[in-house]
Simulated assay, not measured.
Amino acid sequence: MLKINDLIAKSPNGTEIIVSLIPVNKMQNTRQGLKTIEVGKKVLLQSGVEVDLNLDGRTFYTSLNKLFKLNYRVA
Rank of each mutant, 00 (worst) to 15 (best):
K26C: 00
L21E: 07
L44I: 12
S63V: 04
I22L: 14
D52M: 09
G57P: 07
E16N: 07
T30I: 09
N54I: 02
P23E: 04
T30G: 10
F60Y: 05
N29V: 13
R31G: 11
K41E: 10
A75T: 09
T59S: 15
S63T: 10
V24A: 02
E50L: 09
K66E: 15
G48W: 03
D52E: 13
L45I: 08
L70I: 01
T30Y: 04
G14L: 04
K3S: 07
Q32H: 11
L64M: 11
R73M: 05
G40F: 00
K10V: 09
L55I: 13
D56C: 09
Q28C: 02
R58Y: 02
G14S: 05
L70W: 00
E50Y: 04
G40T: 00
L55F: 06
N71F: 01
A9V: 09
E38Q: 14
D6G: 13
K41R: 15
L21D: 08
I18R: 14
E38V: 12
Q28V: 15
Y72N: 09
T36S: 15
L34I: 09
Y61I: 01
V39T: 14
R73G: 07
N13K: 12
V24H: 00
L34P: 11
T62N: 09
S11M: 02
N13H: 03
A75Q: 13
N25D: 06
T36W: 10
Q32C: 02
